[in-house]
Nucleic acid binder design. Structure first.
Lengths: 339, 339
DNA sequence: GTCAATTGACGAAACGTTTAAGAAGCCGTA
DNA sequence: TACGGCTTCTTAAACGTTTCGTCAATTGAC
């Protein structure tokens, strides 16, 4: 079932059918209607692979998630897929490498399939050269969540620093003064921005964070659990509140506190970051900062498609609205613990 | 950068380079090595779109998830992507329709891009005709998790009935006799199998389930919450234990019980199904039945690729091992509540 | 030394589409 | 009547691969 079949049946040339199928002008009303009818009768559909070869650009986006099983990412993917579908694009989904670094082969494979544009989440600095080497210069690149410097790529994310400031301020407003920070890895731009935001807001409020109350750990529940344990051990007593680099860390920390007989938020207030699905569950009710992940995915697609249309746009960044979501895990500081 | 560039540079024909790039025989050792070297120098890579057009089959799998933001699915996708990558395949990821039914356009779009095979999760019966109409007969179809009858497709899943029996038996072994069931929608083959399994095991143990203790609800936390509430209202008192159609329902039910001042598992034991990531969180510790989702994704890819190689294999089904995971939400029945 | 068999390489057609260039027909105008 | 300008449609050349059929060169058997 090809253009040629339809053409034959309709008594016109292949070119005419192609023009009709692509909604191009220059075809008479009668023939257009006729071709459309016949194509429909025959159940004809354009072969996108052939179009892709001929035009040199495919209606395909490549999306590389750091880790699809991490509950943070699927909603981004959902937004990407939805927006792509509306624009008639398909989405290749790939894993990043297990260690957080990008796998060169993954990107190569995407390019082999002539993706029209590439969207990445959570790049780290060392990924930069790889991208420049492997991705053809006419393929737009969009980075989401995290950003790395010196790379030909648009960006979509939130103002992590502002979100972190909001959250720290929330704790301060609740009267907390003995505040610990369980920060994400500083290699991540998002994590370091958040940490900076926490620091700024706390400093402005005159709250000092001792070194043993400021830990860096990876972005998992286990790491959060261990970090919280270490916090208790090295400090000897629980802080009044804890700011965590993301929700998983917060969940792990809550768990650690519970294991030590400390209840949340009665003894310790805990705040996360990201608002993963689990955080809003009524069993958890985590105070956190929401990233509009679905919309971020959509925005990433917009950026990609716009640059596809106008390749020499200046580099752009879309900063989306974040939202401090106050739930059950943070509460007013107890009189005794407010320093 | 095409075959022809490499050929020119290496002083051989395009055909020879193609043979080398595809690891086909019939090329001398010297020329092969030379071509390989030049291709590498030039950074040449085969254009998969062109190969796809020429051969008529692309190295691409289409994966349609019912809902990517549902925490159940990403791991399946992870398995699919991993196995596909190993076989040199890319994966198109698509959403099913919002209402659970398959969106025809989605499948069409996948076919337009000449996917080599299609993998679906959670089909419902009404999707059958759509698939037959739209998917070319030479494109293998694999259905996972749920199955629908009368469709040209292989299947991979678990023995839901057996898993459900195991779980019901577990509660019986703990001494529970007043057991309620919050079943998933019977339109889903998986849900109805589970319900049947619960029923069988309970019947064999001589445990009767009254109509008001057997509710059907959709597979969400909210639905579970409401169903549990209804349970309490219509029965007037809490059951000794509740078997839930999936983990989300179980989570919602737990929440409802807590809201009514009933603690889990002290007053009510609750069991879920699926073992989504959240269920193993130390904050929840849900007793449930694990589906090896990553491996199911991998198996789905194997089925697809095998059928691609041998189209006239008989229909096959892969039933994977499930595992009853006993955690904190189920415990021995209190003497008073054992009927 | 001859001939068949094998090996290594090549030429060219095809896959289904897009699109530049051009032809044919029609209109209105001069 | 002749002609420029539209509109509508067609011809044909790509896009980058794969692969069949062919052919020359080499090998091995006799």
């Amino acid at each position: 079932m090809t253009l040629s079949d339809v053409a034959k049946q309709a008594g016109v040339s292949i070119a005419t059918v192609s023009y009709v199928m692509n909604d191009r002008g220059g075809v008479g009303e009668r023939t257009r209607a006729n071709v459309l009818r016949i194509a429909d009768e025959l159940g004809f559909r354009l072969n996108r692979v052939a179009s892709g070869l001929r035009t040199g650009r495919t209606q395909v986006l490549g999306l590389v998630l750091a880790d699809i099983t991490n509950p943070f990412y699927p909603e981004i993917a959902g937004g990407v897929i939805a927006a792509a579908a509306e624009a008639g694009f398909q989405v290749f989904l790939s894993h990043g490498g297990a260690d957080g670094r990008l796998d060169g082969e993954v990107v190569q494979a995407l390019c082999d399939h002539q993706c029209g544009a590439l969207i990445f989440t959570s790049l780290v600095v060392s990924d930069g050269p790889l991208l420049s080497d492997v991705v053809p210069p006419d393929v737009p690149i969009v980075q989401t969540v995290r950003r790395i410097p010196g790379i030909r790529a648009d960006f979509v994310g939130i103002d992590d620093r502002a979100g972190a400031r909001d959250e720290a301020q929330h704790l301060i407003d609740l009267g907390h003064r003995d505040i610990a920070v369980l920060a994400g890895p500083s290699a991540s731009s998002a994590s370091s921005e958040r940490t900076a935001g926490y620091r700024e807001a706390l400093a402005e409020a005159g709250v000092e964070v001792s070194p043993e109350s400021m830990l860096e750990c990876s972005l998992t529940g286990d790491a959060g659990y261990r970090a919280a344990q270490q916090l208790l051990e090295s400090r000897g007593h629980a802080p009044s509140a804890v700011l965590c680099g993301n929700d998983l860390i917060a969940l792990g920390a809550i768990d650690a506190f519970l294991a030590h007989g400390l209840s949340v938020p009665e003894h310790v207030s805990v705040a996360g970051y990201d608002d993963i699905w689990f955080a809003s569950s009524r069993l958890v009710q985590l105070t956190t900062v929401r990233q509009p992940r679905h919309e971020m995915g959509r925005a990433a697609v917009s950026l990609a498609l716009e640059r596809l249309a106008q390749p020499d746009l200046p580099p752009r960044e879309v900063i989306m609205e974040h939202e401090l979501v106050v739930r059950r895990t943070t509460t007013r500081a107890r009189a005794g613990t407010a320093a």
